[in-house]
Amino acid sequence: MKPLMLHGHERSITQIKYNADGDLLFTASKDQTPNVWFSVNGERLGTFDGHQGAVWSIDVSYDSNRMVSGAADRSVKVWDVSTGVCISSVKAKSSIRGVSFSYSGSLIAYTTDKMMGQESEVRITDIRERQDVEDSPMMRMPITPHMMKGLSVLWGSLDTAIVTGHEDGAIVKWDVRTGKNLDRRCEHSGQIDDMQLNHDGSLLITASKDTTARLWDLETFEPMKKYKTERPVKSAAISPLLDTCPYVVLGGGQEAMEVTTTSTREGKFDARFFHLVFEEEFGRVKGHFGPINSLAFHPSGKGYASGGEDGYIRVHSFDDAYYQYKFDY
């Protein structure tokens, strides 16, 4: 396969996401401008200018009309995807680590960092009301002291619950209506860097610094599978083609601060493909010369994109070999 290399960012990539149709690819990096690209040919549609800090997390609404970004400048901004204009900006008291659109597209959930005397919180805001002035979330759920700060956030179970991933490796499910903590599971021993749902929202995959990724049943919150590597896992995604290609892809590599001390070959910056059920690795794709920070499967399952610490986004479409590969069991 001939990947497309997208070079619109000046610093390391933090998160990439396809929209639901798969024609647009949204990318965020530690520079201050998220980008949006046409995934078919790598043409850049535009950039979202306005943040004043590293953009930690982005999400796209289901209808692809809105994009939300959370940044280290303590703001959440909602953007119009067709024009690149910032529609509303929500101010918080500490930097934003994770943002997520609800399925309906009218609510966003975001997590705030624990810093400057502020406790980490999960908040929900209705973006239909303009909130330029101050932060007045519909609901705020402080992450109690015994829990470490929340990093990533996702909506699940038809917008009745949200799931947060934490610094101590725990994942927590919250009731959206009452704000109560429904369930807390702690299987990982390291910080959770990324959480993704599969195409129908029934499975959750978490990527952790403890060098593993785990698959969860979102409804019961039971751990199901575990994918082991030997380097910290920064991102994991589930293939939408569950029947023909039931695979997951894991990205990661060495800690960014240690990268300069080793060669590319030793760093293991490959995207690694595992069988979803058998937990066995079967394929690797090279390319990045820094750790992979974010991965996303194309919604058709016919390709994937990866964004790395090196600032590049690589958009791959699978060869026939990928579809013809027979898993040996």
């Binding site: 980008n35 040919n41 790598g42 549609l45 535009g46 950039t47």
Partner: peptide
């Protein structure tokens, strides 16, 4: 945004066709 002056089609400054890689 920063792509406002780009011509139709991929801009070679931001979109590069990388070398072939195989799984």
């Amino acid at each position: 945004g920063q792509s406002v002056n780009d011509a139709p089609g991929p801009n070679s400054a931001t979109t590069i066709v990388a070398e072939d890689v195989t799984m």
